[in-house]
Design a protein around this nucleic acid. Structure first.
Lengths: 127, 127
DNA sequence: TCAAAAACGATAATCATTATTGTTTTTGTT
DNA sequence: AACAAAAACAATAATGATTATCGTTTTTGA
């Protein structure tokens, strides 16, 4: 896996702030270092990094978000502030075995997203 | 919840074949009864039915699919044949409590999708 | 019966993403 | 270093799903 400078910069951005940015958030951030980078380049590299297995899309319908943490984990979208949090409890907790059993097939990939209100937003609400 | 004729027909289609069709699959099927229906009408009614809580989008990135079963349940996409199956085991099995605990927030909605190979496709492969 | 509201079809617009194209940069080899 | 081939790039056009607009038709309910 060789990386071009821009592709490296995209990875750096994803490492620096783990807030699961969208393609254009990534583009903005990379532009601090490479002001001329094109959104097309960002998309091209993101899909390349995905197929290399270096990053993942988290599967948000309508507007994708990217994550450099490719380990099995789960996401929580706060509907109040829009923040996306990671949940690192092991996936077995999420009933994979049960699902496989019910469906009688083989699960390769689990896409689990929770939506709700995060700690901070609940606290704010109670003021 | 009053329904127009076309809106009714959309619900009928969703009830008749629970294969989680996309908007244009629904449009095709409704056209058997109302050949003149426009795709825009299908989309307009689908989003209305969603906000009424009569149906749900299952959240497939890039190409949405709709489900008239609004009870808590989970989906399994077969990557081989493209079929979408339901998994009706109770959501508690999928670690909601654990996730809420880890995140310290309140979960309103769980979106759980598994991908893999279904029974039939595994069988076919082993021929 | 008739006016207001809702729904409609056709089509234009939007938005995220992907493809194309001609140019620039990088790489590996003499 | 020189240079040809490969990879990456910016700009922009194209795509595909979905949403918005608009003028017309249908439904509703007083």
């Amino acid at each position: 896996m060789k990386h071009s400078h821009k592709r490296d910069a995209i990875c750096e951005v994803l490492k620096a702030k783990r807030d699961h940015p969208t393609a254009d958030m990534i583009c903005e951030r990379v532009r601090e270092k490479y002001p001329e980078i094109s959104l097309a380049t960002v998309y091209r590299n993101l899909s390349q990094l995905c197929s290399d297995g270096a990053i993942i899309k988290i599967g948000a319908a309508g507007r994708e978000r990217y994550d450099i943490d490719t380990s099995d984990h789960t996401h929580f979208f706060c509907e109040a502030c829009g923040e996306v949090y990671d949940i690192f409890s092991p996936l077995e907790l999420y009933g994979l075995a049960n699902a496989e059993c019910e469906i009688g097939g083989k699960i390769n990939f689990a896409h689990i997203t929770f939506r709700g209100q995060c700690k901070n937003c609940i606290r704010k609400e109670n003021n």
